[in-house]
Amino acid sequence: MGLEQKLGNMGVVTTSLEQAVGWARSNAIWPMLFGLACCAIEMMSTQASNYDMSRFGMELMRASPRQSDLMIVAGRVSRKMAPVLRNLYDQMPDPKWVIAMGDCASCGGVFNNYAVVQGVDEIVPVDVYVAGCPPRPEALIDGILKLQDKIKKEPLTKWQ
């Protein structure tokens, strides 16, 4: 419908496989339904009526790590939770991405103490950091759009 009107009767579109795969991957991210603390409430707001994350092709929050490819670490990660979080990350199928949402997940935030892991990048590789305590839903959406740009540019293989 819309595409034909814009492009006319083109018939053939040429692109590279890498770009096509990146485009498909970036617009159908299934985040894992996984909240930890305060940021999880803002993550819920982002999915709810006013901000509606599904506009960006990610309305399917999966409760199982086996079905998801994005982990939004929303909140502070305690030392007791850290092994569980790593376990969940290991259970996600490739390709997978991680967003560290909020100051606690990014660097420990206000909790510089014995209980909190000082940044979730100590246990899992992080693609996008979203600052804020907690970040506004707009900030999280911005982080997700940044991640989509990153996924689009990701090469399928490392060309020697």
Partner: peptide, 24 residues
Amino acid sequence: FLHTGIEKTHEGKNYTKGIVLTDR
């Protein structure tokens, strides 16, 4: 699983700064 050590952190903050931790 969400133990944050808020009570211990309070011991290192003065009474005004402690308010910030109670939000969380």
